[in-house]
Design a protein around this nucleic acid. Sequence first.
DNA 1: ATGGTCGCGGAGCGA
Length: 239
Amino acid sequence: MERLVAWLVEHRPDVVCLQETKCVDEKFPREPIEELGYNVEVFGQRTYNGVAILSRAPFDDVERGFPGDGGEARALGATIGDLMVLNLYVVNGQSVGSDRYRDKLAWLGKLAEHVRDRYPMDEKVVLCGDFNITFDDRDVWDPDRWRERILCSTPEREALAGLMEVGLRDAVRKFTDEGGIYTWWDFRTFAIKRNRGLRIDHFLLSPPAFDACIGIDVDVATRKAEKPSDHAPVIAAFE
DNA sequence: ATGGTCGCGGAGCGA
């Protein structure tokens, strides 16, 4: 909470989407965030998963989860002004071929259905969060080492592409075709020191949101700071 | 090479 509060004070974002909050709604520490002027919506569970949205402007149409999502607290949607925001913590999938991997692919299929049904692509739609999938080899520090492994396998990438087919675009690719942009670095291998990262946290935008997006950046400094998450914050700006 | 480090929660699991 100390680091989150300092980060909010430093960056003054209008909307923040958090993943892996790992706490039930009753225990979520709302007050320090509300004191900074944010409205707070949480969708949590004990120990695992959990998502939250912080917003200076009030929320409308909050939705927790989606049909067929398996009941885990991984999706929190809300309308904020003219933005339809869907904050996602995609199933990690453990390893290719595992039960959880099959869950991941099924979950993504249900998500694509839900977005197709409920998120009109002529509105400003923002899907963001931890997708636990790289789009292509540009998002991987060593594509050969990661070939067909979890977060990089072809079925995962096809599932993500299937979601994009609803009418979404990857915000980063509005601004650059370059590789080497990462949002996650493994704790276990001290990967941040050598920049052995993956880009698995995304902003997926409908055409009106894509047009309104004026920049997106990974806050690597926060990943390099004391007691970090293994993910870096991703910050997108809209006109 | 199946490790390594984290957080949660009070052992072992998921990431």
